[in-house]
Each structure stands twice: as C-alpha cells, then as structure tokens.
Design a protein around this nucleic acid. Structure first.
Lengths: 235, 235
DNA sequence: AAGTGGTCTAGACCACCGT
DNA sequence: CGGTGGTCTAGACCACTTC
C-alpha cells in the first residue's frame, strides 16, 4: 500500500495499542506529526481522522489530541472487518465447521442478495468456540461468482482475511441489524443453553466498494458471553 | 452555523431523504456540486464524506456517488444523537416519566462517570411508548454541573434536543455496549412481557467534545419490537 | 499572546470505470 | 479515450484553550 495517510494511521494505531502515548494520554501535535512523517498537514489530518473514526482518540480544538479510555473487557467490535479473532485477543478461539457447500439461492436469500433465485452460493455454517466454550453460530451465504472457491481449511480460520488478502476483494460497506430473540432448539443445544433462553442476533449484509451485495450472514450469540461495543463520534 | 461543508451535507441529506435523486440513484458529480454550491473541491469532498459516514451514499472511483438502499424506517439508529423521535418517524411516540430527581452518585455510578461519590446527578427514568405500546425503559444519569436544570416537560420530549439547542452542549463521542439479558420482573411488567423473557440492552457512556463524561444511561428494549441498525463503511 | 486544532482554497497528478 | 473519484501539497485565516 502506497497510500500515505493510511500508512500513518496504521502506524499510529499500532503505537497507541503498544502504549507509546500512555504517559501523556496525548498524541503529538499536528505540527510534530508533519515533521515526523514529512507530509502535508492535510495528510496528517486525514490520518488522524481515521484514528478518530476507529475510536482511538478524540480531538479538542485549541488543546490537542487525546487517547480515549481503553475498553477493558472483550467486546465484539461492530466496525471491524476481521471478526472475532481480532476482537477477542486475550481468548483462544476455535472454529468448527458444521456445514459447507454450494447451494442454489432460495427465494428469500435471493431477495436479500438482490439476485435471481437459483444463483450459486456458498453456504457456510460454523460454530465459534471461545475459551473452550461455545460462543456463537454463524450462518453465511456468499455469492459464488464473487467468492469462487472456499474450503474447510479457509473457513476454519478467518474467511475475511482470505477474501481480502487472497481474493483481493474490495469490501466497501455493510448493514448490520441487531436484535434479540428466543433461541431455537437446535441452536440452544449447540451453544449449551436452555431452549427459550435469549440469543443476541446480528444480521449482516455486506457489499463490495462498487455496491454489489456479496454476503448475507446471521450470527447467533450466547446471550451471557457476547457483548457488542460500538464507539461513535458526532462531528 | 456558518460551516460550509456541514450546511452542504445537511442540505444534501435533506434532498436525499426527499427523494431528489431517486430517479438516477446517483448524486451529481463533484464537479457539478462545486458549481452548484460555489465552494472548493475539498469542501465538497468533506460534505460528501459526511453523507458516506451517515450511511446515505457510497462512492465508486471512476464512476460516481450512489444512493445506498433505503433502510425501512423502523430501526433504532446507533449513530444518531436525537434518539427515537428521529429514528421511528412513522410511529407515534409518547414518553412517560417514571422518575426524575437530583441524587448523589453511588459508588458504581461515580465510577462510570469518572467522578467522586456523592456528586450531584439528575436521575431520569422514562418509559417510551411507541404506537400505544410500551417499547423501552430508559434510565439515565446526567452530571448536574453539566446539565444544571431538567424538568418533566423537557424529559417528556427529546432531552438531547434540549442539551444541544438550549444548553448548547458540545457532544463529542460515546461508547455503546449492546447485549441481551433475561429481563427483571419490574421491567417485564412495564413492557408488558413475561418475566424471564429476553431484553435487548444498550448501555451508553456519553462525552462532551472536551472528553468530559456527562451521561450514563441504560436502555431496556422490548425484545420483539426493537431492532438496531448500524451502517458501516470500510475505508 | 502563544499554542493547537478547524475550515477553506487552488491546483497537480493518479487510479479506476465505462465507451 | 473522457469522465469521475482518490491522494497530496502549500498556504491562509479562524476559533478555541491555556497561561
């Protein structure tokens, strides 16, 4: 990647995570960052905006740029792409493939994916296990013309790392709908909870940068183990 | 407000909502917007970035700026400040004040608000009623030194409109934690659901632009009626 | 008053899409 | 190829905080 502001943002993110600024809880001034990275002010400001949007810092006019307090516990991060592995860093995560094959879109799925019924899709159902205990069930449909190949080995790790790093997909944006339901019997058994216990649900519609919907997914979380964190800026 | 890019963003948002671009599903090009608003390209791009972040449009390099598909109205929007009134436009919303007075912070609340125990706070408990049916219970604590006055009249409408428009608070950012619990008996009664039915919970920590935490809140939603929508961009 | 972030301009060049 | 967005620069002036 040759894009300066992204490289600077990623570098600063790493430094923040490593605790480089923990003494002062403050970032260097724009002026100092301009000198350090030898770029124009706008480029620094664009990099910094990334950090603001990622929830790491906040800016105070006339005063400086400050670290936001760390989110202590292990939360699911709505804004990140790379899923549980990146969110729950202090945990051991395993993935059990419950099902993986090519199917033809039924009417409902086709409607969600804005494609014809019968379109070829990958259907993946996985059980995520965190610290030896069942954590969530993830059911996904991928358009096969966008994701031409998938296997158990890939699906056992991060599918998104594969999509981004190997298939070079340009993932653009997503709609996420969160709600809460009484769980069904089959899922209850998989998650080791009682039937009619609640479940936290995230339904996900993911698009490429050109607007094409390529994935539909539904994640069912263990209601006692999953918490979602969302950091928001108003500007 | 004399800030050009915000005015342009707000104007374009209104036009999008009014259906001005529904024929083409496409925004005018940057060039056209520059001419229309008589500002520099960077100002247009900053305005457009706001619309991207608000989830209205997506940009495709070399091609144009396109409308995202409408989200059917009835979702709670995580990113918006002005609460239910703005989110559920097609519904009738009433608010019943269950409690409103000044209290002294107990240890737990003080910890959450990063203040001393005993600090004066407004405590507000409200029942939100949507289309004649109980929808959510909202329990909030506001620091009294930031919000010096609050009454039933204000709390019956949008507290945030009051904070922004009258008190001129500069609200900066928030942490939102979403999870799912079995509901307690008292709340079940208020929401007209069975004890031990699930509940969708949003816990909220809200800060001014200068980093001061001024509100802590917990919203308990009717699990069958509430859905949260979050639109995300990866860039 | 000095320091620091916020807004805005004008212009150059690059990267990608569609014809 | 022309059209359109993406990145980057250099510089001016404003607004807020801090002392």
């Amino acid at each position: 990647m040759a894009i300066k502001y992204k490289e600077i943002a990623d570098r600063l993110e790493r430094e923040i995570r490593e605790g480089t600024f923990d003494q002062t809880k403050k970032l260097p001034t724009e002026e100092e960052l301009i000198k350090k990275f030898e770029v124009s002010r706008n480029t620094i400001r664009k990099a910094v905006t990334q950090l603001v949007n990622r929830g790491y810092i906040y800016q105070v006019q006339g005063s400086g740029m400050f670290l936001r307090e760390e989110s202590v516990t292990d939360y699911i991060n709505l804004g990140s792409l790379r899923g549980l592995t990146k969110d729950l860093t202090s945990k051991t995560i395993e993935t059990k493939i419950l099902s993986l094959h090519v199917v033809e879109a039924d009417e409902l799925t086709a409607k969600g994916l804005r494609c014809e019924g019968g379109t070829k899709l990958y259907y993946v159902k996985r059980l995520r296990i965190v610290d030896e205990e069942p954590f969530s069930i993830e059911i996904s449909y991928f358009k096969k013309d966008v994701v031409p190949y998938l296997n158990e080995d890939i699906a056992s790790n991060s599918i998104y790392s594969y999509l981004i790093d190997h298939l070079k997909l340009n993932i653009g944006f997503a709609d996420k709908v969160i709600n809460c339901e009484k769980i069904d019997e089959e899922s209850a058994e998989l998650l080791h909870i009682d039937p009619f216990d609640p479940a936290l649900i995230i339904e996900n519609t993911v698009c490429l940068t050109n607007g094409t919907i390529f994935e539909l997914s539904k994640s069912i979380f263990h209601f006692q183990k999953a918490k979602i964190l969302n950091r928001i800026n108003f500007k």
